[in-house]
Nucleic acid binder design. Structure first.
Lengths: 225, 225
DNA sequence: CCCACTCCATTGTTGAGCAATCTGCTAGCG
DNA sequence: CGCTAGCAGATTGCTCAACAATGGAGTGGG
């Protein structure tokens, strides 16, 4: 036994890798809502066959990140106002499920909230808006994780991914206010105050939702289905 | 303009049709947990190419109904006890979100609860256990629909589909008690009593969950990941 | 009994090919 | 001038055949 092969526990096929690459381009805002995803182009870009690209696109569409119209191809999904409302409604449900557990968390779980919070704060002072948002969302994912339900986590990750379709297109407003707001929320968890955490979470999400909707309407995105 | 072509608003490709056909075989229990889904077999059975089958299988796996191990193929997913707990936790979240709206529903919404309930009752007296379960689940889907959130509906449908992987394998116990239990729940909605509905929903789901887990452990399904 | 080796079934991926369909353009017509 | 028909060109939907890579089952030797 010369050397342990670098463990590739989660070996993935080419289609999965391409889907992941596209996902990343989506959340980074490199692909904008409505952009067409042409099979031939992607096949050449990733140097794979068109069939493999098709599999990757199936994954994206079934994840809700793209839409697929027969004989017209796949395009990056553009969110409608109604969809944003639904997504935020679902997001609220997920986060409240996590916040409910605030009463019974231990210090290790509290630490999982602390880390992304610090990273987000650092990104804010560095003026890195995109990073700040990434870590902010990680903070919220940690909140949901308190519910100790992997399926719930998966749903939440999907919701965030779809929301980022819209969020990626707007400059986060009042960035410098985020750390204070998050610290306040964190303090409620540190105090094991579930009700207090929920009370702060709901208006925060409502504000964030209306902000995104406002931006969608401004830029005229998310028009006809 | 001789005749309006029968509108096919939701044209679907072959892969989607096959995925749907397999889904139906899953909820009907014709395919059991762990059964392998071999590409060549399916290609011949549905008379399509292997690539098309692969696309359909991608859809199933990303919907959580099948598992995919590289170079080992796709198999019908077998639920672990932990997954069942998570699924029921998520299901509870969805249904409670619907039950919360009990205060403000109108008579039309109440009617959407009534219909599947009657169908389920009829199936019970007819001794059609499978149909009874189908309509019972439709009743619960109607509860979730009260939240008026399409995304939530989609999540719930996915959760139910996964649960049916396990439910399809067991004979529903105490079938004749279902109608009474459901009527009781319906009465709370008719009375616009959200708290009462929630209080009845939670233990019902808990019982159902433990029943499924018990059956899984009996039959030894859901072993090693 | 256990290990190594071979063989076979199955998957992963490719590339070419063709029918169906959409899109944009052009030409003809009123 | 506006409008429709229809003709390419582009793109997708799906098939087919092939080959490499991998996993598992069987086989034989130690």
């Amino acid at each position: 036994m010369p050397a342990l092969k670098p463990i590739e526990l989660h070996r993935t096929g080419a289609a999965d890798l391409i889907a992941q690459a596209l996902r990343e381009q989506l959340v980074d805002g490199e692909l904008r809502s409505g952009d067409p995803l042409r099979e031939a182009d992607l096949a050449e870009a990733f140097d794979v066959s068109r069939n493999t690209v098709r599999e990757a696109l199936r994954l994206l569409t079934s994840a809700g990140l793209a839409v697929h119209e027969v004989h017209r191809g796949v395009a990056v999904k553009s969110l409608t106002v109604e969809e944003v409302r639904d997504l935020y409604g679902l997001r609220e449900l997920c986060e409240l499920a996590g916040a409910l557990r605030a009463e019974t968390i231990d210090s290790a779980q509290l630490a999982t909230l602390r880390t992304p919070l610090d990273l987000a704060a650092a990104a804010v002072v560095a003026g890195e808006g995109r990073d700040a948002m990434t870590h902010d969302l990680a903070f919220h994912r940690a909140i949901v994780a308190l519910a100790c339900n992997r399926r719930l986590d998966a749903v939440f990750v999907g919701v965030l991914a779809e929301l980022r379709l819209g969020l990626a297109m707007m400059e986060p407003s009042s960035l410098e206010q985020w750390p204070a707001r998050n610290e306040e929320l964190y303090a409620r968890f540190a105090a094991r105050d579930a009700a207090g955490a929920s009370e702060r979470l709901v208006p925060y999400l409502a504000r964030s939702c209306e902000e995104l909707i406002g931006h969608l309407q401004e830029t005229g995105t998310g028009r006809d289905a």
